[in-house]
């Protein structure tokens, strides 16, 4: 590895090249049919490993919500802390043990 002068880092946000998904022992899985798209999980994800996506192609708890964005977990970065599981107001996120 070549060290730059003054050890400056020139690429912003480059930790995104280093995935932390292997840290996980439990995997949060969103059950979209129970999700009310409140984005509380997205608010509190410390990574942030939960992304806001267009919601029209996802199952929906209430047809009125179809235009709202949905939270989608990026498993390349999710460390499996479970904050989203604990904070979800409709208990729509399952916490499943990772299997090999």
């Amino acid at each position: 590895m070549k060290i730059s002068r003054g050890a400056t880092i020139t690429e912003p946000g480059s930790t995104a090249l280093e995935e932390t998904g292997s840290w996980r022992t439990f995997r949060p899985v969103i059950r979209y049919e129970k999700c009310i798209r409140c984005m509380i999980c997205w608010n509190f994800c410390p990574e942030p490993a939960i992304e806001k996506k267009e919601g029209e192609n996802y199952p929906v708890a209430n047809p009125k919500l179809i235009k709202m964005p949905v939270p989608v977990i990026n498993y390349n970065f999710c460390k499996g802390c479970g904050i989203c599981v604990n904070e979800c107001p409709t208990k729509a996120i399952d916490f499943v043990r990772e299997e090999k």
Binding site: P12, G13, S14, T15, A16, L17, E18, E19, T20, W23, R24, N43, F44, C45, P46, E47, P48, A49, K52, N74, F77, K79, G80, C81, G82, I83
Partner: peptide
């Protein structure tokens, strides 16, 4: 609010609150 200025892949312990503070 929809932009992330703090990238994932950092080495905080799972469940650390500091990145939540920083990202917001």
């Amino acid at each position: 609010e929809d932009m992330e200025f703090f990238a994932p892949g950092h080495r905080a312990c799972a469940g650390c609150a500091a990145p939540i503070i920083v990202k917001w």
